[in-house]
Amino acid sequence: MATVILLRHGRTEANASGTLAGRTAGVHLDDLGRTQATRAGDRLAVVPLAELVSSPLERCKETARVVAARQARHDSVRPRVHSDKGLTECDYGEWQGRKLRELARSALWKTVQTNPSAATFPGGESLPQMQARAVDAVRRRDAAVGSAHGSDAVWLAVSHGDVIKSVIADALGMHLDLFQRIQVDPASISVIRYTDARPYVLATNSHEGDLSWLAPKHRRKRTRSRADQDAPVGGGAGPGTPA
C-alpha cells in the first residue's frame, strides 16, 4: 500500500456562479482556479510522485497538468497524467447545470444534507454508488502503486469535492451520512496513507504549508514493517523521525 494525495481541482466559473457543473463538458478553471492550481503545484513540487491520476473532466486535467509542469521544474521529469473514470464527478443527473440556490428548495436537498446514504439524483447516480466506485478506484490504484514502487511511494489523485469527501469518509470509517461534516475546498490537499492494517488520514482540506515531510525517505523500494503500519501508542514522534 502507498500514500495518496487527493487534490480537488481549482475553482471554475461554475463554482463562482453557484452552478452545479457535474459532468458538463467544457467547464474550465477560471483565473483564480489557475492561480490555486499553481500554488498547489508549487507545494507538491517537493514530493516525487510515483503516479499522477486525474478525473477525465477538463477542470481536473487542467489542474493535474499544472502540477505535472511544477514537478518537471523541480525534478526535470514531467510525470504523465493518467485518466481514471472512477475519479470522475458524481452523476447529478437532472440536477446538473442548475443553480444551487434553486436546488436548495427541493426536498432532495435536505436528504443530501442530512441523510446522503439515501440520496439518489434523478436520472443520475446515488451518493453510495459514487462513493463505492471512487473508493474502489483509489484503493485499487493505491495497491498497484505500492506494489510497483514500494510502500513509501506517494501518488496524486485529482478529483472533485464530493468524491474526495466520500473517500476521506471511508478512510475515517465514517458513515456516509456524516460525510457533509468534511470540507474540501477548490485546490485543497488531503492525504491518506493506506496500510494492510488500516488507512491513516494525515491531512484534510490543506491550503498552505510545507509538504516535504511526505517525500519518500528511502531510495529503494520498501515494504513497511508491522511497526510502521500500527498506530503508535501515545501518538509517536511524527514524520520527521529518522529511519
Rank of each mutant, 00 (worst) to 15 (best):
A2M: 04
V4Q: 02
L7D: 05
L7H: 12
G10L: 10
E13R: 10
E13F: 00
A14D: 15
A14H: 13
A21M: 09
G22E: 04
R23I: 05
T24W: 00
G26C: 12
G26R: 14
V27K: 09
H28Q: 13
L29W: 08
L32M: 14
G33A: 08
G41E: 10
G41K: 06
L44M: 12
V53G: 14
V53P: 06
S55D: 06
P56C: 09
L57H: 09
R59N: 14
K61L: 11
E62M: 03
T63Y: 07
T63R: 15
T63F: 00
R65D: 15
V66I: 15
V66M: 10
R70C: 13
Q71F: 03
Q71H: 09
R73P: 01
R73Q: 14
P79E: 10
V81H: 15
H82S: 11
D84P: 05
K85R: 14
G86S: 10
T88K: 01
E89F: 00
C90H: 13
G93N: 08
Q96M: 09
R98K: 15
L103Y: 03
A107D: 14
K110P: 02
T114E: 15
N115T: 14
P116H: 08
A118T: 12
A118V: 01
A118G: 10
T120I: 08
G123F: 09
G123A: 08
S126N: 12
L127R: 14
M130A: 11
Q131L: 06
Q131I: 00
Q131F: 00
Q131D: 12
R133I: 07
A134K: 11
V135M: 07
V135L: 08
D136E: 15
V138C: 09
R139L: 14
R139M: 14
R141Q: 12
A144W: 02
V145S: 01
G150V: 04
G150T: 04
A153H: 02
A157Y: 03
V158Y: 02
V158H: 05
V158E: 08
I164Y: 02
I164H: 04
K165T: 03
S166F: 05
V167L: 07
V167Y: 08
I168P: 04
I168R: 03
I168Y: 02
I168A: 06
A169M: 08
A169Q: 08
A171C: 14
A171M: 07
M174R: 00
H175F: 04
H175T: 14
L178S: 13
F179T: 04
F179I: 00
Q183M: 09
Q183Y: 00
V184A: 12
I189N: 02
S190F: 06
V191F: 01
I192N: 10
R193F: 04
T195R: 13
A197D: 07
Y200R: 06
N205V: 00
N205Q: 09
H207Y: 00
H207D: 05
H207C: 04
E208S: 10
D210G: 01
D210A: 04
L211R: 02
S212Y: 03
S212I: 04
W213I: 03
L214V: 02
P216V: 04
P216N: 09
R219H: 13
R219P: 03
S225G: 13
D228I: 04
Q229T: 03
D230R: 15
D230N: 13
P232R: 06
P232L: 05
V233A: 15
G234I: 01
G234P: 04
G235E: 05
G236Q: 02
A237Q: 11
A237E: 11
A243M: 05
